[in-house]
Amino acid sequence: MSARGSTATAGRNWTVGLRTWVQGLVPSGQALPDRQPVYVASWIYVFGVLSLASFVVVLASGLVLTVGGSLWWHTSSLGHFVNSMHLWSVELFFATMVIHLWGKFWMAAWRGERALTWVTGVLLFVSSIGTAFTGYLSESDFTSQWIAAEGKDGINAIGVGAFFNILNPAQMLLWHVALLPLAVGALVVWHVILVRRHGVVPPLEASAPEPARVGE
């Protein structure tokens, strides 16, 4: 294809449109930069990546659990250990995510067009709680019975129980292993893209950066 043809069709070429959109999501060089602004120098910055890493452990332990089926962990010591890893990775996921949230709040990290990053973070927190809830309902143990019996009143009270039946473990298991992890995963991707798109928020009341020096 000649350069001229490419230019002529660019305006209505869907592929070019998608490519341009994808390329514009994150400024060039900012997807995986090897430098960060000088003010990125605190342990509080690692809690975002720690919650991301915990999420990977949650997904991995959950995937191993799916291999043995929904009752595997009751009958196998290996299955029970993987279940324990799934539980503890969830506890670590929430703990690191909440510390990350505390940190970002005190940094007022929503400044400079970063409000959507904050909003997607809160959505992640809420959808993670929903995902954990369906996990408890999928345990097929006493906890599942009690949470289903007690939790149904909350879900039914707002009319949602008619469609999302928490007394039906088959429905809850599928939400837990497919729909909700996909939703949380998509939100994670969106959140991380926004973080890379806008860069790390500068310090509150930062003095004006020194102007760039030519040739450096």
């Binding site: 930069p33 430098r35 928020v201 950066p209």
Partner: peptide, 29 residues
């Protein structure tokens, strides 16, 4: 406000940070 791209930078290894985080969280779990 000045934004992040206006500030001087330092070396920072995001991938190394993630890999270390993953190892730490896996072992801790």
């Amino acid at each position: 406000e000045w934004d992040s791209h206006d500030f001087p930078t330092r070396h920072y290894d995001l991938v190394k940070e993630f890999v270390i985080a993953l190892v730490v969280m896996t072992l801790l779990t």
